[in-house]
């Protein structure tokens, strides 16, 4: 028996009838075709499927699509605006914060939430904040560097715009 949901994804409203057992990540990937959000495990451990729900990072494999009814979701596809990369995306590129790229969308979304919660991030707080996101390629070093650089850029642009 299908259930009706209505939600916003990357600024676009979607109405859909979903199977009650469908995970949010498969709704995003297979119903909406937004395949940037990846699946790396079946235990909500790896964080590859991280998206923003109402601005906070959530592993989209931990939720059913029906639970996202009425929510505002941002996926990796919604991070660049008008062709301009988000500062976190740019920082991952500049700092070689990715190799195979599979964990990257989840890392970027987790980072967005971390910076939003605490713009004064330290190396330690970035590492702690990323505990739920696994990367097998980079050893995390350049991911941490990228997030600190992005946080700095976001802080300084906030200072400029508040003048």
């Amino acid at each position: 028996m299908l259930r009706h949901i209505s939600l916003t994804v990357n600024g676009t409203r979607h109405d859909a009838d979903v199977e009650p057992r469908q995970l949010l990540v498969y709704f995003i990937r297979e119903t909406l075709g937004l395949t940037g959000t990846n699946v790396g495990c079946d235990t909500s451990t790896c964080g590859a499927c991280t998206v923003l729900i109402d601005g906070r990072s959530v592993k989209s494999c931990t939720m059913l699509a029906v639970q996202a009814d009425g929510r505002d979701i941002t996926t990796i596809e919604g991070m660049a605006r008008n062709g301009d990369l988000h500062p976190i995306q740019r920082a991952f590129h500049e700092n070689h914060g990715l190799q195979c790229g599979y964990c990257t969308p989840g890392m970027i979304m987790a980072a967005a939430s971390l910076i939003e919660e605490n713009p004064q991030l330290s190396e330690e707080s970035v590492r702690m904040g990323l505990e739920g996101n696994l990367c097998r390629c980079t050893g995390y070093q350049n991911i941490v560097k990228a997030i600190l650089a992005a946080a700095e850029e976001i802080r300084s642009s906030a200072r400029v715009s508040s003048r």
């Binding site: 937004l34 940037g36 996926t75 596809e77 660049a80 995306q89 590129h93 990715l98 790229g101 599979y102």
Partner: peptide
């Protein structure tokens, strides 16, 4: 990197 940081990489 470009496609991988924007979710456009196709696995």
């Amino acid at each position: 990197d470009a496609e991988l940081i924007t979710g456009q990489g196709r696995y």
